[in-house]
Design a protein around this nucleic acid. Sequence first.
DNA 1: CAATTTCATTTGTCCGACAATATCCGTGGA
DNA 2: TCCACGGATATTGTCGGACAAATGAAATTG
Lengths: 265, 265
Amino acid sequence: MAVKKKPIATPSPAGASSPASKANARARRRSLRLHGTIARDLGVLIVSGRYKPGELLNGEIAASDRLHVSRGAYREAVRILAAKGLVESRPKVGTRISQPERWHMLDPDVLSWIFEFEPDEHLLTSLFELRKIVEPQAAALAALRRTDEHLEAMARGLEGMAKHTLAVEAGRLADQEFHSALLRASGNEFVMSLTSGVGAAISWTTIFKQRDNPLSRDPMPDHVRVYEAIKASDPQAAHKAMENLVDLAFLDTTNARRPRMKAAK
Amino acid sequence: MAVKKKPIATPSPAGASSPASKANARARRRSLRLHGTIARDLGVLIVSGRYKPGELLNGEIAASDRLHVSRGAYREAVRILAAKGLVESRPKVGTRISQPERWHMLDPDVLSWIFEFEPDEHLLTSLFELRKIVEPQAAALAALRRTDEHLEAMARGLEGMAKHTLAVEAGRLADQEFHSALLRASGNEFVMSLTSGVGAAISWTTIFKQRDNPLSRDPMPDHVRVYEAIKASDPQAAHKAMENLVDLAFLDTTNARRPRMKAAK
DNA sequence: CAATTTCATTTGTCCGACAATATCCGTGGA
DNA sequence: TCCACGGATATTGTCGGACAAATGAAATTG
């Protein structure tokens, strides 16, 4: 989940319906219902800054009519966005884009909408900062609390990474599963629910590395070190190993991106 | 595993209306619309374990009819819950309570629904664990990045705490504002969006302290130490001071609660 | 017995109407 | 002139009923 695959550089969403947009919309409609696709489209427009905070959305009648959907479906979409803190609607005034500090930045959907397109550098950095705050401590907790099932799940993740490599989807999923299992092993529900945020950061790391610097550092040793420390129930070692892992992952990401940035300048 | 139902003080939401509950319900209905109150009621029933994960909700027609509301309003409520990961609905099968690991535990609403009644001890402990993971690091970041406005906001919070004390609402709000401003000063959007979680933990700390142990430690020195370190742009000192603050706050909470627990046993 | 088709149930979408609410503005009074 | 008050008005909120789509399960068929 989290990140969609390709649309790195897509045409502007809000414009007239391009030929492919109809097919895409129908394909998405298979899993997300109509209200879900509307919420997603509006959500992307909001978090991408196309609609600005404080701005007023079109009235329900006008909007639903322009999208050729019923007012009920549109309203359900707005409810979803409001539930994620993106908008706030009041009678007589309308539906207003909330200030970014009200947004639920750690909501999995909001996160995936933010990173639907090439992510903002500052935001990606912030996400890594969060990883570096949370994951080492989570690893330490996991070293104390992990069960055998947790270890097995992490081991499965490592095997998958080794077998498939991060160049293919299966390997990337294995990477995510490793980190997800680790967070689960921390035994803290709130830490667990940061999985999607961590996953988003991981996704973009591997995407950048593959695209801009395919021949890069082997990530396996770092991961194995973390695993071994947790298996050995050594919280300090786990903390240190995970800190190191996140640092390296962040370096990989910036190293892969930086040349492009400089070239652009 | 997760949450148990424990309506210590307040009667069950649907139960007999205490004198204040009617007024409260009406007051809430002013801001929350009908669909909002339905979502809240259902949400509380879910996170409190009254509805169990995997369980199927009543059909929309039956449910909306039983609540004497339109199907549309009920559907909007369900969309809200689905947006927060609490339920998942599919045609022909119905709306199913999701597994707790799917819940968005850090969503402000979900959090407030969880802590609507006397909180589960384990969950409160987990929340403090998260605080201890995040807040010290956030304080360190704040020491590096705080602006004068951030400092002023934190100072205002401290003044409010000193003037009103935690015994009154104004003082508690000032405490929250201090921590909120600190998280803002960290400059990290994702850390900032943990404000509600931190705030929930703070609320319950002060509530317990006031109720079970009114004459207790003065919290001002800890807070001032954190403030001074951030003002001095000393990240290590800020980290340490905040770690100490959270430890003390957690001790206050457990000390206040433990006697009651033992008495119950 | 397996593959396929049909059926039934539940959510999903649509339309149209009216109610509630809060802003805005004009009116009347101090 | 300024303020208080009250109504006009635009927008979301709620309602009811109808039909479409999807999907799991039973019935049918080879």
